[in-house]
Design a protein around this nucleic acid. Structure first.
Length: 184
DNA sequence: TTAATGATGGGCT
DNA sequence: GCCCATCATTAAA
């Protein structure tokens, strides 16, 4: 499988959010390899009140200001982690939130991580995805374009047959009018 | 089926 | 003290 190169990120964050749909995210976890197809994303831009980068760089969100292709993992609601892929050039502070994936490989590991629940609810949410993969803040700031990394983004060869759907983003109180959620 | 709610803690004013 | 890019469970319709 071919890893995504940095040229993939040489476009707007919204375009990246759309084009990440159908790509694979591969994780070499301690329990084995896990692969998921990205099926739902949201874009978070600079000058966007809903973005963590809106109020400037802090210790918490510093990874979001790294170069495109870096992971940004944050802790929220006291219990959960969410996973983002940094976009744009160094220092801008934009990212794409991974909201849902489809299991491709390692589904037994995901079930184990999640406690063997209903397959329909296994990975259909941003924190469910991180729980199923076993991602936490220790996976913040990683280079996802490194072929030797344990967490990376690769081409799937999937051609999107289904239309990409669009809606407002979920779970935020500001900037709701932006139609920056995409899924297939 | 949808709607309301408790869990639980870091970060910011 | 309040907010939060959430989830699972319970209650209501």
């Amino acid at each position: 499988m071919k890893i995504l190169n940095s040229e993939f990120f040489n476009k707007s964050t919204i375009d990246i959010a759309r084009e990440l749909l159908g790509k694979y995210i591969v994780f070499n976890s301690l329990n084995g390899e896990i692969i998921g197809e990205i099926i739902e994303t949201e874009a978070y831009l600079k000058d966007d009140p809903a973005s963590h980068s809106y109020l400037g760089k802090t210790k918490r969100n510093s990874a979001m200001f790294e170069k495109a292709g870096t992971s940004y993992v944050y802790f929220t609601y006291g219990m959960y982690y969410c996973f983002n892929i940094v976009t744009n050039v160094l220092g801008v502070g934009e990212a794409v939130l991974i909201r849902a994936i489809k299991p491709v490989s390692g589904i037994e590991i995901m079930k184990k991580n999640r406690g063997f629940i209903d397959e329909k609810k296994l990975v259909n949410g941003p924190a469910k995805f991180t729980m199923a993969f076993g991602l936490d803040k220790g996976h913040n700031g990683l280079n996802l374009l490194n072929p030797l990394g344990k967490l990376r983004l690769v081409e799937s060869g999937i051609k999107l047959k289904r239309e990409i759907k669009t809606s407002e983003r979920i779970g935020i109180s500001k900037g709701k009018e932006k139609m920056w959620r995409f899924w297939i």
